[in-house]
Each structure stands twice: as structure tokens, then as C-alpha cells.
């Protein structure tokens, strides 16, 4: 019973965090064709800024979470303008600039915080009990924040004017220009939101698991897998792919140990990719 609940909550948390980070990556990818390999370090940066605000400045956790989101999201606007926009359509230079961002941020964090494993204080304490089952409040809160944000993003993309414009840009860039949509402003907005979401996930995962300068590499790989399995341009697909990945990562370790479970997960994903190269839910893009 304990194990089932622990696995299930872990599955939900991992899935929602993967999806949160992947959304921002998918926005940039589907709108401007930018493969943002720096999205992982942005997630990592979120965790460390959150930690700094809480421990060094002594801010309230929730205030720190909010501030972190704003700081990293604003940083995203800077990235979009100076690092991505000049190279739209140039795959090679986008990859290079992303490596530059990764090296700079990882080295910076390394110098300031060191390589030791840190963690944020939990966002909630105590244990919730119903009958024989018990779940820590931290898990509930982490998942609740993730779920609320995911609902909010879905609402934003499907129901608001800006969200519709984001979709328009990703489906037909020239068509979007001709409707007078301000493509630069909307992509900046999408990067703002995407980096903000990654920062929140960084803080939450930094409390749920731990912080390390290389946590971004791990997340980046998850995000790439998720986006490819989902296919481009489908938010629903990202949700399903996120659940698949979260399930693999939370259930497989129970069946096979350690690295073997990672290898199995990868094997499953490679097979999925070979069956449906364009992803399962989106439409193929030419790059």
C-alpha cells in the first residue's frame, strides 16, 4: 500500500514537472524552430536562485518562488532577444549559443554555490493520513502547484488572444505575420512564460529531490524525449508523453535496478521513435 501510494505520487510529480519544463521548450521549438538546449540549465538556474533568495536573503519561501519565477522569466526575454532571435533558422548557431549559455550558467553556479548537493527547504511539512494510507504534504503541494500551472497554461494557450497568437505562429509563421501578429513580442512572451515555468519546476524539484549544477542536463534529456515522443505542436501530446516518461521513471526502478531501468526506458523510447518518427500526437516539421 505504502509503496503503491509512494510510486503513484512520485509518478504524478515527475510527470507534472517534466511537462512544466517541456512546455517552455516546446513553445520555442514549435514557434520559431529553436532547439533550446539551454532549457535544462534555465531550470537549474531557477532552483539555485530560489535557494539563494531563501537562504541568503531569508525571504519567505512562497515569495522567493514568485520572485525566482519573475527573475528567470525576465532572463528568458533577454535570451530570446539577444541569443535566439538573431539565429532563427540557423540550427548550427543555435546549438552553439545554447552551449555557451549552458557553460556560462553552469560555471557560474559552480563558482558561487559549489558542486555539492544542496536542496531547498520543503514547501510544506507534515503527513496527510487517510485510514492506512499516508502521503507527505510536500508531495501533495508539489503536485498541486504543478497541476494548477498546467491547467493555467492550457487555458492560456487555448482561450486567450495571446495564446491563440502563439498557436498561429507555430502553425504558419507567414500567415501569422500577415494577420499583423507581432511575432517578436509573442515569441518573447512565450519565452517569458516558458522560462518562468522551468524556474518553478527547478524550485519545486530542488525541494522534492535536490539541487546540483548538472541537474539541468538530466532534465534537458527528459524534455527532448518528451517533445519528440509527443510530436511538435500538440499540447495534449506533451501531457501524454509526460505521463509516459513519468511512469517509466517511477515504475521501472521497482522492476529492474538502477542503470538497467534507465536503459530499458531509453530502449522503449527509441522503439517508439522508430515506429512513429514524427511523434505520436503532433505534425512533422522540416528543419
Amino acid at each position: 500500500m505504502e509503496l503503491i501510494i509512494a510510486t503513484l505520487t512520485n509518478l504524478l510529480i515527475l510527470s507534472s514537472m517534466y511537462i512544466l519544463v517541456a512546455l517552455g521548450f516546446a513553445f520555442l521549438f514549435s514557434m520559431l524552430g529553436i532547439l533550446n538546449l539551454a532549457h535544462g540549465v534555465i531550470y537549474m538556474l531557477g532552483g539555485y536562485i530560489g535557494l539563494t533568495l531563501i537562504t541568503a536573503l531569508g525571504l519567505n519561501q512562497w515569495l522567493a518562488l514568485l520572485l525566482t519565477t519573475l527573475i528567470v522569466a525576465t532572463f528568458g526575454i533577454f535570451l530570446e532577444k539577444y541569443c535566439f532571435r538573431p539565429f532563427v533558422g540557423d540550427f548550427n548557431r543555435i546549438v552553439m549559443i545554447c552551449v555557451v549559455i549552458t557553460v556560462v550558467l553552469q560555471t557560474g553556479v559552480n563558482i558561487i554555490a559549489g558542486t555539492q548537493i544542496l536542496s531547498l527547504p520543503p514547501f510544506a511539512e507534515g503527513i496527510f493520513k487517510i485510514g492506512p494510507a499516508s502521503v507527505s504534504y510536500e508531495r501533495i503541494v508539489t503536485f498541486a502547484i504543478g497541476a494548477v500551472l498546467l491547467l493555467a497554461v492550457t487555458w492560456f494557450v487555448n482561450r486567450t488572444k495571446w495564446g491563440q497568437q502563439m498557436q498561429a505562429i507555430s502553425q504558419d509563421l507567414e500567415g501569422a505575420y500577415l494577420q499583423g501578429i507581432n511575432v517578436h513580442r509573442i515569441s518573447a512572451l512565450a519565452t517569458f512564460i516558458g522560462c518562468g515555468l522551468a524556474a518553478i519546476a527547478g524550485c519545486l524539484m530542488g525541494a522534492y529531490l535536490c539541487l546540483g549544477p548538472f541537474m539541468g542536463d538530466f532534465m534537458l534529456v527528459k524534455v527532448l524525449m518528451l517533445t519528440i515522443i509527443a510530436g511538435v505542436g500538440s499540447i495534449g501530446g506533451i501531457f501524454i508523453a509526460g505521463l509516459i516518461l513519468g511512469s517509466l521513471d517511477s515504475v521501472l526502478p521497482l522492476l529492474v535496478s538502477g542503470a538497467a531501468s534507465n536503459a530499458t526506458a531509453i530502449a522503449i523510447l527509441v522503439v517508439l521513435l522508430l515506429i512513429r518518427p514524427q511523434g505520436f500526437f503532433g505534425h512533422e516539421v522540416e528543419l
Partner: peptide
């Protein structure tokens, strides 16, 4: 697999190799 999908597929394969070596 074409273009980006080849890149991603090979990326996953590479990660898989590392995991197999770990295992």
C-alpha cells in the same frame, strides 16, 4: 529518420549506450 528526428534518435541511442555501460 530525417533531420532533427535522426539527431534526436541518435541522441537517445547514445544515452542508452551509457546506461548499458553503467549497468
Amino acid at each position: 529518420l530525417r533531420a532533427l528526428y535522426y539527431a534526436m534518435g541518435s541522441l537517445f541511442f547514445g544515452i542508452g549506450v551509457i546506461q548499458i555501460i553503467y549497468a
